[in-house]
Design a protein around this nucleic acid. Structure first.
Lengths: 221, 221, 221, 221
DNA sequence: GATGAATGAGGTTTCATTCAT
DNA sequence: AATGAATGAAACCTCATTCAT
C-alpha cells in the first residue's frame, strides 16, 4: 500500500534525501544568502556528511538551480491555478476576481517570505544565467497576466486599445513591489492592504472600458 | 581660483583618489558583481597598489557602502530634479508632465544600466543592512512620487480619496519593472515605449479625477 | 571436463572475477595512470559495484601489486621463452639468434604499449616498494641476459674476459630505451629498425671474441 | 658592489624566494613524489605560508614545470660541457675520453640521486605533456651523443657505416640503466664500475673501425 | 602615504574506504 | 556475496587584510 509501489525502498530514500537537500539548501540560501552559505552548512543542517551532498548534486551552483526550479515551479503553479482565465461574465465579477487575485498574490509571498527573498535578493547576483532565469520568470508572469487580460478584452471589459502585454508587465511590477514591501514590513498588514487597494484601483479604473456604461463608472472594492 | 581654496593640494589629491576608488569600485562591482570582484581588481583598474585601497576605506564592505551612497545620491538627485512638484496648472499639462517624467525615468536607467544592475541585482545580496538600504531607497522613491501626487491632489486633478502613498509605491513598482525589462532587452526600443505608454495610461486614466470631465467615479477601499 | 574439477563453480566464478578486476585495473591504470584512476572507474568498466572490489582486494595499492604481478609474469614468461639458452652452435647462428631476439624484444612492447607505459611510467611513482619491484625486474632481466651470454661464453663465442652480468645490464638499458622510443614514436617503423640494428651491431661486434677470426682486441678500464 | 646592481633589493628577494620555492619543491617532489607532496609541505619546508606559494607560481603543476626546467638545464649543461666535441686526435685518446665521459655521466647522477629519481620515476607519471618533455630530453641526449660521434666518424675512428643517431640513442639507454642501477645500489661502487667498464667495452670495440688495425668484421642487419 | 609581499582562514571538491542492506 | 550510499580526510586554491619597507 505504499505510495509509489514501483520505487524500491532505496530509490525512495534517495529521492527523499535529494528533496531534503534541496529544502535545506533553500533554507540556508534564503536565510544567509548563496555566497555566505557553505556546502557544509547545508550538510550540517541535515546531519549528513558534506561528501554526501556531492553524491546528489554536481556542485554548489547545481543545487541552486534545483532550488530555483522548485521555487519557480511552486510560484508558477500557484499563479496558474489562481488565474484560471475561464473568466468573468460581468464587470462586477471581474472586479471581484481581480480583488481575489490581488489578495492571493500577496498571500503567496506572505506565506513564503524566504522564497521571495531568495528569488528577489539572491538569485540575481549569482551569474548571468541565473539572472536570466529570474528575468524570464518575470516575463512569464507578465505574459500570464496578459493572457488573463486578453480574455477580459474579448469580453469587452477593457479598453479596446489596451496593450495587454505591456500592461501585464506593469502589473507584474506592482506585484513585485508589493512583495518587496511585504518582505520589509511583514507585520504591517494595513500598509499591505493599502497597497493592494491602490493597485486594484489603478487596474480597474485604468483599464476598464468606460464605453460600456458610458457616463458613470462606479467601482468599489 | 580653485573650488575649495581651503583644501591643501595634498588634501585635494586625497579626495580625488577617494572618488576615483569609488568610481572604479562601482564599475567593477556592477560589471562582475560584488562577490566576484577582488580588491585587487579595483586597484588594478586605477593603477594603484591594492594596499593603498586600505588607506582610504576600511574594507571591502565599506567601499560598497560608499559606492551605493554615490549611486543613491545620483538617482535621488535626478528624481528630485525631474519631479520638482512645482506643478501643472491643468489636466492636459499634468498629462504632459507625466509623459515627460515617464520618459525621463526610463532614461535614468537607460543611461546607467550598470547602476541599475548594481542596485537591483547586486546590492540586495550582500547583507541585511545593505538590503535595508535598497528597500529604504524604494520607499523613499514611493514617498517622492506620493509628494508629487499630493500636489496634484490639492489642485484637484486626482480623485479626492486617492491613497497617494500607496499609489506612489505602486508606481515605483512599475518603474522597477521598466528598469528590469530595459536591462534584459536594452535594444528593444519599441517594447520600452509600449511599457512606458501602458504605465502612463494606467496612471492617467486610473488616477485622474473623472468628475472634471465627466460624471463621477467614486471608488473606495 | 573442467580444468580444475576440484574447484566449485562459485570458487571458479570468484577467481574469474578476481582476474577480471586485475585486467580492468591494468587497462585503467595504463590508460590514465594510477593516481588518475578511481576504484569506481575499474568497477564501472566491469559493470560491478565498486564495493565488490573490496571483497577481492585489500585496497587500491593492493590491486596495483596484483596488476604488476600479472604483467611481470607475462614479461618474464615471454623473455624466458624467447631466450631459451639452449644455444647456438656457431657464431653465425648466434648472430641469427641475436637478431631474432632483438626483433622479438621490440615485439613484446609493440604489442603491449599499455603494459610498457604502466611499468615504465607509472609503477615507479607509487612508493619505494613498487619502485624496488621495478628495479628488481630490470635486475632480473639483466641476469637473464647474462645467463644467456654465459652460455655463449662457454662455447667460446665471446671474449673470455667478458663481464656477462654487467653487459647484461647494459643490454637491458638498450632494450629499455627501445621500448621508450617505441612508446613515443609507435609508428616510426624505420627508426625502430635502425635502433634495433644499431644495438645488434654493438652487441655482436662488441662482445664477439675476435681471436676466433682475427687479431686481438684488448680493452682496459 | 652587489652582484646585480640593476636589481632592486625587493626584486632580488623575490627572485631568491622563487628559487627557494623551486628548490624546496624539488626536494619534496623527489623525496616523496609529486602526488604525495602537498603545497603545504613545500611551504612548511621554507617556513612560509602556503598562500605565498601561489604568489610565485600558478599552481602545483606549474611549479613542477619549473623544477623540471631547472633540473633539465642542469643536466643538459653538464652533458654539453663534458661532451665538448672538440675531439680526440687518436683512437687511444678517444678511448681515454670515452672513459672519462662514462665516469662523469655516472657522476652526474651519483651527485644528484634525487634529481635522477625525480626525472626517471616521477616526471613520467604526471601527464602526457610532462612525459613528452622527458622523452624529448632523452631524445636530445641521444642526438647529443650522436653529434659527438659524428665527429669521431669524420676522424675515421668509427666504422664508416655507423648509424650515429641510432647508436646515440642506444648509448643513452645504457646511461639510463646506469643511473637506475645507481639509484638502486648507490653504495655498490664495484658494480657501478663494472657496468661502466662493460658499457665502455661495448662502445669502443663495437664502434671502432677495425680496418684501421686489423682484419674486417662486417655485420649486416 | 603608498606599496605589494605575506598570510591563512575558508571554501570547494574528490575519492578511498566502510558498512548496512 | 554484492552493492552503493555515506563519510570525511585531504588537497587545491582564492583573496581580504596586515604590515614592513
Amino acid at each position: 500500500m505504499s505510495e509509489s509501489p514501483s520505487l524500491s525502498r532505496a530509490e525512495r530514500n534517495r529521492l527523499q534525501l535529494r528533496a531534503d537537500i534541496i529544502q535545506a539548501a533553500f533554507i540556508e540560501f534564503s536565510a544567509r544568502g548563496y555566497h555566505q552559505t557553505a556546502i557544509a552548512d547545508i550538510a550540517k543542517r541535515l546531519g549528513i556528511g558534506h561528501g554526501t551532498f556531492y553524491r546528489h548534486f554536481e556542485n554548489k551552483r547545481d543545487i541552486l538551480d534545483h532550488v530555483i526550479d522548485d521555487v519557480s515551479a511552486k510560484i508558477m503553479a500557484t499563479l496558474v491555478a489562481e488565474n484560471a482565465p475561464s473568466a468573468a461574465a460581468s464587470l462586477a465579477e471581474y472586479r471581484e476576481q481581480c480583488a481575489r487575485i490581488a489578495k492571493r498574490l500577496v498571500g503567496i509571498f506572505a506565506e513564503n517570505p524566504a522564497m521571495a527573498r531568495l528569488m528577489l535578493f539572491e538569485a540575481t547576483s549569482i551569474d548571468q544565467q541565473m539572472t536570466d532565469r529570474m528575468m524570464n520568470l518575470l516575463d512569464w508572469g507578465g505574459k500570464l497576466v496578459a493572457a488573463y487580460m486578453s480574455n477580459g478584452l474579448k469580453l469587452g471589459f477593457f479598453r479596446a486599445d489596451l496593450d495587454v502585454e505591456a500592461t501585464g508587465h506593469a502589473i507584474v511590477g506592482m506585484i513585485l513591489i508589493s512583495a518587496l514591501r511585504f518582505l520589509t514590513h511583514p507585520d504591517d498588514k494595513q500598509e499591505q492592504q493599502r497597497l493592494a487597494n491602490a493597485i486594484q484601483l489603478l487596474l480597474v479604473d485604468g483599464v476598464a472600458n468606460r464605453t460600456l456604461s458610458s457616463t458613470a463608472t462606479t467601482p468599489s472594492s
